[in-house]
Design a protein around this nucleic acid. Structure first.
Lengths: 177, 177
DNA sequence: AAGAAAACAGTAATGATTTCCACTCGGTAT
DNA sequence: ATACCGAGTGGAAATCATTACTGTTTTCTT
């Protein structure tokens, strides 16, 4: 808890300090993603539609991680109330196909999606079995050895996920009663 | 014919030779798991039942990884045709609660379960987005740094999963056409 | 051996996801 | 620009894994 708060402070300060760079680095990936999507669409002879653009924007603008289809549907509907549930499903599947989005499942019966991270971004989780709390972390060593494994297996990595399941400190104490 | 017989003999002899060690190393984890289950059951004031024992045996005997509820149900039904679908669900959930089993989801809509690995056992995957092929791997360095992350966060790890998503060599070639 | 709590089998209900269908739209070739 | 055809859409119905509910049976404590 203390750790997280501390981390949060640092993030805010960093943000203020390097505001301009942050802005650039936030915008660039989005443009690249859009480009990637367009390329995939033309390569597969699919079609660009307004609906897809709207869903794209809502999905990649708000950095709310691991979003539910329903949550995204609600957001999208605010932009264009005519868009149907099925279209959101179909579009997320499309994002997944072209490796822009990523499917997750934390065990509550709902599939969640998150933007695939670009090189150098990480997204690993500590997931508490007790209270469901999810903490993110990064570890460059793990990154390094993952790449190594992929290289040895001639595997072209698009994304990875590392999840450590167990009990957070609070739940460990609770459990031992 | 003679050759085959001979080969067979050798296998038997090998088996006999290291029979004892094999037996121990195969039985110990299972016995420990059963003990863990019994402890959890008595701690939570639940009850031991024949159904749970049968499901336990079928789940932990056959090392078929990431088994579907339905697959397990079929196996269990061969031992005792009276056992119901819902009981298999409930029991797997119980295994999950006491950290003996682990829930996975590869995106085909079916939840899969696997025995939680003991210390020193690993279970990481390369998952091909193209053809769905799953390759297992182990990497002690990744293990090491995972433990480190957990330690720093005061997190008691029960299990972990690392999945690298991407394209296997075959699909990479196919994709670039 | 009796009683309370928990589990059971079987089935109905739930709810996330997919499919279907009639219609619309995007983009290429003319 | 126009016409065409395949892809995409919305809305609702269908599917299918999972969960909840029922009355009955089993376990375990005293």
């Amino acid at each position: 808890m203390i750790l997280e708060f501390h981390k949060c402070r640092i993030d805010i300060e960093n943000h203020l300090l390097k505001g301009k760079e942050e802005l650039i680095s936030r915008l660039r990936p989005k443009a690249e993603r859009k480009k990637a999507l367009k390329e995939y669409i033309s390569k597969k002879k699919l079609k660009s539609t307004k609906q897809r653009d709207t869903i794209f924007d809502e999905f990649f603008n708000h950095p709310g991680q691991h979003i539910t289809v329903e949550e995204l549907y609600e957001k999208v509907k605010k932009q264009n109330p005519k868009i149907g549930y099925a279209t959101v499903y179909r579009t997320l599947k499309l994002f997944k196909e072209c490796a822009l989005a990523f499917e997750r499942n934390f065990g509550d019966g709902k599939t969640r999606y998150e933007p695939v991270k670009f090189e150098g971004e990480h997204h690993d989780h500590l997931i508490c079995i007790g209270c469901g709390r999810i903490t993110e972390f990064e570890n460059p060593h793990i990154e390094h050895y993952s790449r190594e494994v992929a290289r040895v297996n001639e595997f072209k990595v698009v994304n990875h996920k590392l999840e450590l399941y167990g009990y957070c400190s609070a739940c460990t104490r609770k459990k031992d009663n």
